[in-house]
Design a binder for these strands. Structure first.
Lengths: 191, 191
DNA sequence: CCCGTGATTGCACGTGATGTAATCACTGTA
DNA sequence: TACAGTGATTACATCACGTGCAATCACGGG
């Protein structure tokens, strides 16, 4: 299975996603197309399956393990920071390559959005396990996902070497700044 | 083209999305599969093309037209309220049916996420047209998308008859409550 | 009556994806 | 050594999605 991922990554980088067929991938890996679909439901999934699985585990555990004294949002950030440290920090170059492949193709972008939504749902579930209300959990998980998305983007696009976890806290600060200043407040009070 | 959408909606509601083929849709509409793909790039697109096009227009215009005295975030909310009034408010039942179809199928969900992301990008572009910084525009547009998503969900799931625009302002308030209260604040200050 | 334009169609083709059954590789056991 | 069982791999058949291309149709204006 690792061989299929490696072959797929190479070919996607060489010729792009749509211009490479599953047959090519399996051929380079010394397997058949049928076994490819035994491991991955999708041609796209070869780019997502391993990472999103680990991410889900790490974040869930990070949320479950941290002190109940933390606010729910801080618990989510803690979980995301755990994933940042354990999964992304030391693979910045690889993450960049992968992201380049994904952003070059609309289908892959959609799949990534799907994975982000799935991660959001598992974060919400982890919050509910801490006793949070159903709707509150979902909203807070979505805020966490927004912060995560913003931080990841700025981290991969940035040239300096600051660790990802700092981008997370920075993104959280940016969000607070945008949301909590009520310069006019009109549309939030009318009704 | 309207006939294709109608036929597709019927069949998706009757037998589900994956269990209905493009051939069936065109057959019910009295056309051929080839012309289906002349109108829609995708089998999925038949559910999204018309609505997302109008939504993009209305929201963009709403942001561009409203007073520059409004904060960027309020401008986004104004645009989303315009879309709420003009496109959704009077079609609540239809929106519910459509949403039921989408949520029953992972592929359709991914496409919807893609459309949401596209709308987010156009909102960011509209904000930049108001002179906003590139990154700020994107962040604020994403906050708007989050509020929109939350409001739409609560609106379609709710039983009472309050208008969608009120759900938008409520969701914005919920977001403010979640983000701006710093009960612990630990993870936002550490670094 | 003819012409131009746009929508529709027919046909051929490659690719993605699935169900089923056969085969292979490998492990433990007698 | 032989054998049985288990899981991964394979071969084969099949279907639906989606595209490129050329032909045809509908139709309003000159």
């Amino acid at each position: 299975m690792g061989r299929l991922q490696a072959a797929a990554l190479e070919l996607f980088a060489e010729q792009g996603f749509e211009r490479t067929t599953v047959a090519e991938i399996t051929q380079r890996a010394g397997l058949t197309t049928r076994t490819f679909f035994n491991h991955f439901t999708d041609k796209r999934e070869v780019l997502f399956k391993p990472l999103s699985g680990m991410q889900k585990e790490v974040v869930t555990r990070g949320i479950a393990d941290c002190s109940t004294a933390l606010s729910p949002l801080d618990a989510v950030l803690t979980g995301l920071q755990a994933a940042a440290d354990e999964l992304f920090e030391e693979r910045r170059a690889a993450v960049r390559r992968r992201q380049g492949i994904i952003e070059a193709n609309p289908e892959l972008l959609e799949r990534e959005l799907g994975k982000r939504a799935a991660l959001t749902d598992t974060m919400a579930a982890a919050l509910r396990a801490r006793g949070l209300d159903h709707d509150d959990a979902l909203l807070i998980a979505r805020v966490g996902a927004l912060v995560h998305q913003t931080a990841m983007q700025r981290w991969t696009e940035s040239t300096d070497e600051r660790p990802l976890r700092e981008f997370l806290t920075d993104a959280m600060c940016s969000l607070r700044a945008v949301v909590s200043r009520d310069e006019s407040g009109v549309s939030t009070r009318q009704h």
